[in-house]
Amino acid sequence: MNRIVREHYPVEKLPEDLREGLAVGQTVTITVEEEAKLDAESFDAKVADILSHPQPMTLREIRALVGPRNVTSEEAVTRIRALRDEWD
């Protein structure tokens, strides 16, 4: 995993959305880390570990574990309805 750290970085050089709440003229420390991607093997190992040691999880933690789905709500509803309707 790559990690970049910049100390004493001028607030003026930050993108607008990151400058919010910071005073002009200040300096900040910026840390940028690449998000790790789970492959199928490590995902299965992580799921097995969670199942063997169950602990309450927040919805945010669950979504982070599962990762992006790349499916809109409408697509999901269409798939579910198609599965449900195939039994009619």
Rank of each mutant, 00 (worst) to 15 (best):
4 I>W: 03
19 R>P: 07
4 I>A: 07
4 I>V: 12
65 L>H: 03
60 R>I: 04
7 E>F: 01
64 A>Y: 03
20 E>T: 15
68 P>L: 08
75 E>C: 05
39 D>Y: 07
27 T>I: 06
6 R>H: 09
35 E>K: 14
43 F>W: 05
83 L>N: 14
4 I>S: 05
84 R>D: 09
10 P>C: 02
65 L>D: 01
48 A>R: 12
80 I>W: 11
67 G>P: 06
23 A>M: 06
31 T>Y: 00
14 L>R: 02
74 E>M: 10
17 D>F: 14
47 V>H: 03
38 L>V: 05
84 R>I: 13
2 N>F: 07
80 I>H: 11
27 T>H: 12
46 K>Y: 01
2 N>S: 12
7 E>V: 09
20 E>I: 13
14 L>C: 01
15 P>F: 05
79 R>L: 14
62 I>C: 09
47 V>L: 14
34 E>K: 10
81 R>H: 08
9 Y>N: 03
87 W>K: 15
55 Q>M: 12
6 R>G: 07
20 E>K: 15
29 T>D: 08
73 S>T: 14
70 N>Q: 09
10 P>V: 01
6 R>N: 08
33 E>Y: 00
8 H>P: 00
3 R>W: 00
87 W>D: 12
58 T>Q: 01
42 S>M: 10
11 V>E: 02
49 D>C: 03
76 A>K: 13
12 E>N: 04
39 D>Q: 07
39 D>R: 08
45 A>G: 06
58 T>N: 00
78 T>P: 01
56 P>F: 05
11 V>Q: 04
8 H>F: 07
63 R>T: 07
69 R>Y: 04
4 I>Y: 06
16 E>S: 15
44 D>N: 13
64 A>H: 08
88 D>K: 15
24 V>M: 09
69 R>F: 08
7 E>L: 04
69 R>N: 09
5 V>M: 05
87 W>L: 15
76 A>Q: 11
60 R>P: 00
72 T>V: 02
55 Q>F: 06
38 L>R: 15
76 A>E: 12
12 E>K: 08
59 L>R: 10
54 P>H: 04
55 Q>A: 15
33 E>M: 07
3 R>E: 11
66 V>R: 10
48 A>T: 09
56 P>D: 04
38 L>G: 09
23 A>Y: 01
14 L>Q: 02
46 K>R: 12
79 R>P: 01
70 N>G: 14
84 R>P: 03
62 I>H: 04
67 G>W: 04
17 D>I: 13
35 E>R: 12
74 E>V: 13
16 E>C: 09
77 V>S: 10
21 G>D: 02
76 A>M: 13
81 R>M: 11
49 D>Y: 10
24 V>L: 08
12 E>Y: 00
88 D>R: 14
40 A>E: 13
6 R>T: 04
36 A>W: 04
43 F>T: 02
80 I>D: 06
76 A>P: 05
80 I>V: 15
50 I>P: 05
56 P>R: 07
57 M>H: 08
3 R>I: 09
69 R>A: 12
80 I>T: 12
4 I>L: 13
